[in-house]
Simulated scan of single mutants.
Amino acid sequence: MSADNRFALMPALRQARAVLGLSPAVLATLEAMLTCLPKTGSAHVVFASNETLIRRRNGVSDRTIRRHVAHLAAIGLLRRCDSPNGKRYSRRNPLTGEMLRFGFDLSPLFGRADEIRRMAAAETARQEACDVLRLRIRTVLSAVPEEQRMDLLRRLRRRLSLEELEDILAPLRSLEPDTNTMPTPPDHPATELVTSDGMTATDSQSVRHCQRSNQETRKDSPSELRPDQIGAACRFALSFSATDISGWPQLCDHADRLASMMGIDGDSLRQAKARCGPRSVAKTLMLIAEMKSRVKTAPAYFRSVTTGMRAGDFDPDRLIARRLRAGAA
């Protein structure tokens, strides 16, 4: 990997940092080292002094830098090349062209690039699996006694591992509706979404915001989609309903239950309905639930697209219509 791409690994490192044994502070020191590499060429040795790294880390102590360097070396992301006097520099033999480099060699980091990306992908999948388990647990909370429900809610506030969530769900499986454990349909369409800058992406990559060609109101309009069309476009979200949905009252009630499962509070829901209308909010909630694993924080995303800064650009009817067209193709 060339130095031009010196920061290309940072997103994967952030995602896989827990697996690699990297604390946020150590990761910040590693990023500071990457800023010291030349912008061009393929050099991987950092010659910066501790004083330089301290400045780029906003004034952490020299002892902290040394501790972080030792940790990076111990986990195999850095190799120390120490000079006799402890300075960091390079020296070239003009006769042979041989180059001696003394500093922090980040070649091990770049050599493990593919491995780190695989670790990041696995960690992403694991986090998405945790989100699904949390959602399944929340679907049965109304069926458990009050005392047990409060205990479960307290436990769900913590950061739980996949194994811990599976242990919580195990005794509750008998309370789940059969439709809750259905796999995502194999013909689940990857819908093209339009971003605010005119670019497109599939919803398998991320949830983007649909740019609207005009600023028409989002209050429920006569030409809106039917409930059966929404259900056809959002099959996974619909699978959490224990009863058939035949009209708007049932769909809106189901969307309200989805909001509770996703941690969206009643005040946010009321404000959104007052601004956008209950049907528009129901469609938005169905879309968020359908793509839950791609929305990092459902409550914050919901507020953003209904009453926040992105409300003017988010059009649930248009997104659902695109999903329907993709499914019919």
Score class of each variant (00 low, 15 high):
Met1Ser: 11
Ser2Val: 04
Ala3Asn: 12
Leu9Lys: 01
Pro11Leu: 10
Gln15His: 04
Leu22Met: 10
Leu27Cys: 11
Glu31Gly: 12
Glu31Tyr: 00
Pro38Asp: 06
Pro38Met: 01
Ala43Ile: 09
Ser49Cys: 01
Asn58His: 07
Ser61His: 03
His71Lys: 10
Gly76Glu: 09
Ser83Ala: 15
Tyr89His: 13
Tyr89Cys: 07
Leu95Gly: 00
Thr96Lys: 00
Gly103Ile: 03
Asp105Gly: 03
Pro108Ala: 10
Leu109Gln: 07
Gly111Arg: 05
Asp114Cys: 03
Glu123Tyr: 01
Glu123Gln: 15
Ala125Trp: 01
Ala129Asn: 04
Ser142Ala: 12
Ala143Thr: 10
Val144Arg: 00
Asp151Pro: 00
Leu153Asn: 09
Arg157Glu: 15
Arg158Thr: 08
Asp167Arg: 09
Thr179Ala: 13
Met182Tyr: 08
Pro186Ser: 11
His188Tyr: 11
Ala190Cys: 12
Thr195Leu: 11
Gly198Tyr: 02
Met199Leu: 13
Ser206Pro: 00
Val207Phe: 09
Glu216Asp: 14
Thr217Arg: 08
Pro222Lys: 06
Leu225Trp: 09
Pro227Trp: 01
Asp228Met: 02
Ala233Ser: 13
Ser241Ala: 14
Asp244Glu: 14
Pro249Thr: 07
Arg257Glu: 14
Leu258Cys: 04
Met261Tyr: 13
Ile264Met: 05
Lys283Gly: 08
Met286Ile: 04
Lys292Asn: 12
Arg294Asp: 06
Thr297Asn: 14
Ala298Arg: 03
Tyr301Glu: 09
Met309Tyr: 10
Arg310Asn: 15
Asp313His: 12
Phe314Thr: 08
Arg318Val: 10
Arg318Gln: 14
Arg322His: 06
Ala326Thr: 15
